[in-house]
Amino acid sequence: MTQVNAPMVGKVLSVDVKVGDQVKKNDVLVTLEAMKMQIKVYAPADGEVAEVNCNAGDVVSTDTVVVALK
């Protein structure tokens, strides 16, 4: 399982995938807001979304696993 952490402290604007989706490397998983800009979190590898651990509006940090892929 690949755990995808939030790359920096921010607020989740949108979760762009759901459990079961097939994603390819560099697909957008989650969009965060930090420093008044939108940061897209990209899939580090191909895979299927196993878990989605955040919702829009959550504040996440680098310890937070936002999505897990398998």
């Binding site: 790359p7 920096m8 560099n26 420093m35 800009m37 940061i39 897209k40 990209y42 580090p44």
Partner: peptide, 23 residues
């Protein structure tokens, strides 16, 4: 601040989407 950092982050993402240069 923080415009230049944002611009740099975007250039970084353009070259490599896995890169998060903002902070």
């Amino acid at each position: 601040v923080p415009m230049a950092a944002r611009v740099v982050h975007n250039m970084g993402t353009e070259a490599n989407p896995q890169n998060y240069l903002l902070m």
